[in-house]
């Protein structure tokens, strides 16, 4: 399924060259079991790592700066085990693994502490994010996923959430993103905590335009009516992606 999704955007060999050092950014924000849908599915991450390695990547890394205790989040979400079992290296944040990152043109993070250590020597970046309900910014998907690379007093960004998420889309222009709709956190997000909050979406999106992927996920998978989250419009206004997914060349495949 993952191979078909990536095939639809041109195939992995189009993105990953032999010898690439690839960083994959899953969402491991909380200390939650995979079935609760608050974190990236470890099965999906494992499959992605296998494909990337098969495409000839010299090294694959997985990194995140979770909200809860990093070690426990990586362990109990199954991400650490899935990454290591498939030959990827796991990076946990420590006090010295952050550097000041310059993001020219960003409104809020023109200079901000960034979880830099795992990025040393990296040539390709892939985001793999779950789809989650989120009260303040409506939904958390691919663009929000980069929030987990920030350090510092990042809890202030909620005062201007739609600009920070647009900034994140500017900060990280990934090789491609995977929006994992296998489990969708429909309510009580982004933490979840109850199986009744989760539905099985049976859908996987691969995209080079993360804004389009998020827009599709929001209206089609999370099933939200009405206008898209403001941050997608903000990103569009800055030329960072196309929130009207109908305008994007799209290919749909059915599995089984």
């Amino acid at each position: 399924m993952l191979r078909m999704a990536i095939g639809a955007i041109g195939g992995l060999s189009h993105f990953i060259r032999p010898g690439d050092v690839v960083l994959i950014k899953p969402n491991v924000a909380f200390d939650r079991a995979p079935k609760l849908g608050a974190t990236t599915s470890p099965d999906m991450l494992g499959a992605l790592i296998r494909l990337v390695r098969a495409a000839g990547a010299a090294e694959v890394r997985a990194a995140d700066n979770p909200i809860e205790s990093p070690e426990t989040c990586f362990a109990k979400s199954g991400i650490a085990a899935a990454a290591r079992a498939n030959g990827a290296q796991v990076f946990l944040p420590s006090p010295t693994s952050f550097e000041m990152l310059e993001v020219p043109g960003a409104k809020l993070i023109a200079r901000w502490p960034f979880f830099y250590r795992p990025f040393r020597g990296v040539t390709k970046v892939i985001g793999i994010a779950p789809i989650k309900d989120h009260n303040l910014c409506s939904a958390s998907m691919c663009t929000n996923n980069w929030y987990g690379l920030l350090g510092g007093r990042r809890n202030q960004f909620h005062q201007d959430i739609h600009n920070i998420v647009a900034d994140l889309a500017l900060m990280m222009r990934p090789t491609f993103v995977i929006l994992d709709g296998s489990r969708i956190l429909m309510k009580n997000g982004p933490t979840g905590g109850d199986l009744s909050d989760v539905v099985h979406g049976r859908t996987l999106i691969a995209a080079t335009d993360q804004v389009a992927a998020d827009a599709f996920g929001y209206s089609q998978l999370l099933g939200r009516k009405g206008d898209l989250p403001q941050y997608l419009h903000n990103a569009h206004a800055r030329g960072l992606g196309e929130p009207d997914w109908r305008n994007v060349a799209m290919q749909e495949e059915q599995v089984g």
């Binding site: 303040l136 909620h158 009580n188 933490t191 905590g193």
Partner: peptide, 22 residues
Amino acid sequence: CLPWAMETPCVVCEEVCPVSPK
């Protein structure tokens, strides 16, 4: 509290509240 007293959006507290329902 920023939303209550300062006309400023925030609710990080609600976002991270780990119980379900929150």
